[in-house]
Amino acid sequence: MKRRDFVAGTLAASLAVPALAQAYPDKPVRIVVPNPPGGSADYIARFFQTPLQRVLGQPLAVSNVVGGGTSIGNRQVRDAAPDGHTVLAIHQALLTAATLKVMDFGPEAFAQVAQVATEYVTVVVNSKAPYQTLPAFLAAAKAGDLKAGVQIGAINHFLFLSLGDATGTKFRYVNTGGGGPTRTALAGGHVDCAFLTVNEAKPLVDSGDLKIVAIFAPQRLASWPNLATAREQGTDLLLNLNYWWWMPKATPRARVDRFADALRIAMNDPEVVQKYAEFNMSAVFLKGAELEAEIARQYEAMKKLAERNNVTAT
């Protein structure tokens, strides 16, 4: 029994990766998602669950370890045994949590495995608002104080800070929370604008409550071609969520690489391809030095942004 499994595992592995990591994984792999089920960080982990299992030959369990602004789950993976059997799946929330010092460590405390997707975000307003294009919206923001629905210190707050920095606008921030409650507040007219992913905005755009002003992507989405980009409306700015995978710092390099390569193979799995299309995510793969440079760049930029805008905690 054991022997046959081993052979099958080696076969699968030898198709794509160097042979030195073939003993790994030798037991089920636990994926920790520090956000609750149903958020985009959770979706990503679940998209990959079965495809990765096919590549790695071991079952994967997704567990949502929630709380403390993602710090509980992050800390749990940082402190886990560095054998590659505990993996963290989270986007820039890890950087915001570190920037706000809700945890006393940052991206440097992990082995950075890979980036598997990028999701461009949109500025959304109430469909009754008078500003329905990006120039009109920015003009309104400069003229009077528009109320922006954000979660203070979270990624949807930093997105506004980036926009403000690039365009010289300021907003009044109202803490409405994550994507779900924020879009409700927006639909009820209690705030004026918010950053949402396409996936979050779509149901309420379809129902006629909300209107997308611009998507901060390099070009229009194939699935939603009449959605204008910020670039073509005169603001050359790209804003996105990057989905990253992490392991405990001391995990052997061979295992990190083995998992990263498995992720790259799984990205071509029809199941993942279809989910990406459904959720309007772009397949962008990074690993190794390239990934580390990108994360370091974003982390630095975020810390500067926080300093300039006085977003501090404790």
């Binding site: 609750p36 089920p37 149903g38 879009r183 409700t184």
Partner: peptide, 14 residues
């Protein structure tokens, strides 16, 4: 709430 399902007026559309 644990499932990130936000009860509220927009639950019916979301």
């Amino acid at each position: 709430l644990m499932h990130n399902v936000q009860p509220g007026p927009t639950l019916f559309t979301n």
